[in-house]
Simulated assay, not measured.
Amino acid sequence: MSYLIFNKNHTKTKKVKFLTVSLTYLFFCPAFSNYLISKWEPIPDTNIPNAKIGIVLTGGIIREEFSTKNQIYLGDHADRIYQALRLYRAHKISKIIISGGDAEIQIDENKLLENDGARDFLIESGVKPEDIYQEKKSRNTRENALYTAELLKKEHLVGDLALITSAFHMRRATACFNKVNLNTTPVCAAFLGRKSKTGILDFIPKSLALRNLDYVINEWIGIASYKLMGYL
């Protein structure tokens, strides 16, 4: 903005203005956002092979700010826990690991943190408590993999693994688990991209397009930083 105000070269100023407006439009354009997201997210696989253990990564499963021990409110990425429940009911998995810690300290005893909320949701939905394991130390995807590996060893859990997380996050999650020698079958949830044909309304700017694209951009940054740190 300062460049546009103080630069006296009108030709360059016009070019910068045009570029700024064009990029702003693209980031808010559902057609552009959906195209990039659909190329990034894995293709949905409805033929999931049987596995013994399902690993669900937390992050947006439960609305912690509203949920209490008497009432659970699901978050934007609650499809993760639903996909685990669906596989359990279909007898494709027999054990479920909920992986992910909670950054904030639980001061209110009635407040329900995400990992516990996900567990309560599964139990309310018919999953046996003894079939649920909680990994509550991890704060990021790399630690999800590290501490899940520790839990599997500690609890003597053996069998094929299904990794359940949001589609936009699956590439980084799979790479992290591979790094700790855990081979998993990816089960994508909470797809952001749409399979429907692009229509005229998809070229009208919407804030939702930017929000969805932001998830993917954050993943690109996360993968780049993880590679630099040797996590992948």
Rank of each mutant, 00 (worst) to 15 (best):
T11H: 13
T13K: 14
T13M: 01
L19P: 01
T20S: 15
T24Y: 08
T24A: 13
F28D: 00
P30H: 08
P30Y: 13
A31W: 08
F32S: 03
F32D: 05
I37N: 06
S38L: 04
D45C: 09
T46L: 12
A51S: 15
A51C: 15
A51I: 01
K52W: 01
G54P: 00
L57A: 05
G60M: 00
G60A: 00
I62W: 07
R63C: 08
S67N: 09
T68W: 06
D79E: 07
R80I: 05
I81K: 03
A84R: 10
L85T: 00
R86C: 01
H91A: 08
K95V: 07
I98V: 08
G101W: 02
E104C: 03
I105T: 11
I107F: 12
D108Q: 13
D108H: 13
E109I: 07
E109M: 05
F121Y: 15
V127H: 01
K128C: 05
K128E: 10
D131C: 03
I132Q: 06
Q134L: 15
E135Y: 10
R139K: 14
R139V: 12
N140C: 02
A145G: 02
L146F: 13
Y147S: 04
A149G: 08
A149P: 02
A149L: 08
E150M: 06
E150S: 12
H156L: 05
L157G: 12
L161I: 15
L161C: 11
A162D: 06
L163M: 11
T165C: 14
A167C: 09
F168L: 05
R171L: 12
R171S: 14
A175I: 10
F177T: 10
N181D: 15
T184M: 00
T184D: 00
A189T: 09
G193E: 05
R194W: 08
D202L: 13
K206H: 09
L208S: 14
Y215T: 02
I217F: 14
G222M: 10
Y231S: 03
